[in-house]
Amino acid sequence: MSIPVVDFGASSLNEENVADEQIHNLSKELESALTGVGFVFLQNSGITQEEVDRVMAISKTFLLQPDEEKQPFSRKSIANNPNHGWVRLEIERLNPNRPEDLKESFNVTSLNPDIKWPSGAAKGFREIQTSFFRRCTELGLRVLRVMALSLGLDPEVFLSAHTLIGNEGNCTTLRSLYYPSVNHEKVKEGQLRCGEHSDYGSITLLFSSSGGLQVQSRSGEFVCVPHVPGAVLLNVADLMQRWTSDRFVSVVHRVLLPPVGDSSTRQSLAFFIQPDDEALITCCDGSSKYPPVTGGGYLNERFKASYGQN
């Protein structure tokens, strides 16, 4: 299995007026990738490598600070935005059957101007993160529109359930992830940088600094995902699979430990696009293959499994 590559130029952030024929061709390519593999590289999305590098640089500045400097911005410390903030190393367990993941992160879930943001050493953190959040939002909405068209649906079918991104009532999250170097002598049995899991919401946009990600094929084998500078890695998440009655497939993936003797670190930016909390997700083909569920209700159940009592 290989990850398909699709030129998204026809609907990129740099395009305003696109011919119907171009969008039709793009939608068919995207449909083939997301029904067959569930992952696809988007080239010419309009988001540049320079933008990605800028967010990674400021994120790393914050995440390399001592824990006591990051503690005031911890996840669940911000009223009305429980997923916003810093997640320390070894607190999350995306595969409940493995030890805690060897990664830490900062989640941007809300653009509310009243939220306290890191400053100090991470000068410009808020501006850089929120600007990238908005760019990813625009790209994600364009992707959702093309995905709806690829299934012969009204383009508003998915868009109408994502009207509150960046505000209360929607948990779409820009997650800046940092995987520190690994001391293999201290690693717990079965521990990974990120355990096997599928994503929770509609779709995910991923930008990474290096390899390490593996995707599970239909046969159950894990396949290494190449690093493609400048491209966005898009994958289907669980609610979208339910929404489309399994037309689009949400695929299990993981991040391995580096080999013994490899002291390299890893960074990635994941933009998890989530339906509005109150959006009711029902099978868009009119079937009852999956029972209705709200975006927020489904997400909360998945968070319970990932974080346990934390």
Rank of each mutant, 00 (worst) to 15 (best):
M1W: 08
M1V: 11
I3Y: 08
V6Q: 00
V6F: 14
A10V: 06
A10I: 01
S11T: 08
S11E: 03
S12I: 05
L13D: 02
E15F: 02
E16D: 09
E16R: 05
N17Y: 06
A19R: 05
A19F: 11
E21W: 11
I23E: 07
I23F: 14
H24L: 08
H24I: 13
L26N: 01
T35M: 03
V37K: 02
F39Q: 00
Q43V: 14
Q43T: 15
N44K: 04
Q49P: 00
V52Y: 09
M56W: 10
I58H: 08
I58Q: 04
I58V: 15
L64V: 10
L64E: 12
E68D: 15
E69F: 12
Q71E: 09
Q71C: 03
S74R: 10
I78H: 06
P82G: 07
P82L: 14
G85A: 00
V87S: 04
V87M: 00
R93V: 12
R93A: 01
P99Y: 01
P99V: 11
K103D: 02
K103S: 12
E104Q: 10
S105I: 01
S105C: 07
S105T: 12
F106V: 11
P113A: 02
D114N: 13
I115L: 09
W117R: 04
G120Y: 13
A121W: 11
K123A: 15
G124H: 06
F125V: 12
I128C: 09
I128G: 02
T130L: 03
S131P: 05
S131L: 03
F133W: 04
C136A: 03
C136V: 06
T137W: 05
L141K: 11
R142E: 06
A148C: 12
S150E: 01
G152L: 03
L153S: 05
F158H: 07
H162N: 13
T163K: 06
N167F: 11
E168L: 04
E168W: 08
G169P: 06
S181E: 10
N183W: 05
H184I: 12
E185N: 11
V187F: 15
G190C: 05
L192A: 01
R193E: 02
G195I: 08
E196F: 10
E196N: 06
H197L: 00
D199S: 01
G201F: 14
I203L: 03
I203Y: 09
S209P: 06
S209K: 05
S210K: 03
L213F: 07
S217D: 12
R218G: 10
S219L: 14
S219Y: 09
G220C: 12
F222E: 11
C224F: 08
V225H: 03
V228R: 00
L234N: 13
A237Q: 10
A237D: 09
D238E: 14
W243N: 07
T244C: 06
D246P: 11
R247S: 11
V249M: 02
L256P: 08
P258D: 01
V260A: 02
S264Q: 12
Q267W: 07
A270D: 05
F271W: 14
I273D: 03
I281V: 13
C283N: 15
C283S: 15
S287P: 03
S287A: 05
Y290P: 04
Y290R: 00
P291K: 07
F303Q: 07
F303L: 14
F303K: 04
A305V: 12
G308T: 09
Q309E: 11
